[in-house]
């Protein structure tokens, strides 16, 4: 029957035409189209990947920043602490030195005073002795003459001492 009997003419033409069509389209249509689509997909892929990478980098950069900041803060804290310590120590030391110095000064002052005192005492003693001798000499000279005068003399002497 015609319907299920393939006709030679159509088979002949279809074979030729379809064969040529496949080859033509393969060379001039599918190859460029598929290649371009592939290229585009690759470039999109790459763009996505590099965006992802950039994001990763950004993240790690941020983490780095944070770390550096934390380090800096820690360092600052350490430095501040050190400074405080140093200051305290210096003050302490200065206090100590000052104390010692002061004590030394006080001691030497005391010694000086003692020495001065001693010297003064000696001087005083000497002067008292000299005065006494002087007075005694004068008294002895006047006594011989007048009692009234004697008294006046003593008063006068006393006035002098004063």
């Amino acid at each position: 029957m015609d319907l299920v009997t393939p006709g030679f003419g159509l088979i002949f033409w279809t074979t030729i035409a379809f064969g040529i069509l496949v080859l033509l389209l393969k060379a001039f249509a599918w190859k460029p189209i598929l290649n371009t689509i592939k290229e585009r997909e690759d470039s999109i892929d790459n763009a996505l990947k590099s965006a992802e990478k950039a994001r990763e980098e950004m993240k790690s950069l941020q983490a780095d920043n944070e770390k550096i900041l934390a380090e800096a803060r820690a360092e600052r804290d350490a430095m501040m602490k050190e400074g405080r310590d140093l200051r305290d120590k210096t003050i302490e030391a200065a206090k100590e030195t000052a104390k010692i110095e002061a004590e030394k000064i006080i001691t030497s002052a005391r010694e000086q005073i003692e020495l001065q005192k001693k010297a003064a005492m000696t001087e005083l003693k000497n002067q008292v002795a000299a005065l006494s001798i002087d007075m005694a000499e004068k008294i002895l000279r006047r006594e011989l003459s007048d009692a009234k005068q004697q008294e006046a003399l003593i008063n006068e002497l006393l006035e002098d001492i004063k």
């Binding site: 159509l10 279809t14 035409a17 069509l21 389209l25 001039f28 249509a29 599918w30 460029p32 189209i33």
Partner: peptide, 23 residues
């Protein structure tokens, strides 16, 4: 057969310009 040629002609005028665009 004529219809076959028409189909092929249509294929060519659809896909060759499309390919040209990509090129």
């Amino acid at each position: 057969v004529a219809s076959l040629f028409v189909t092929i002609f249509l294929m060519l005028i659809i896909f060759l310009p499309a390919a040209n665009f990509y090129k």
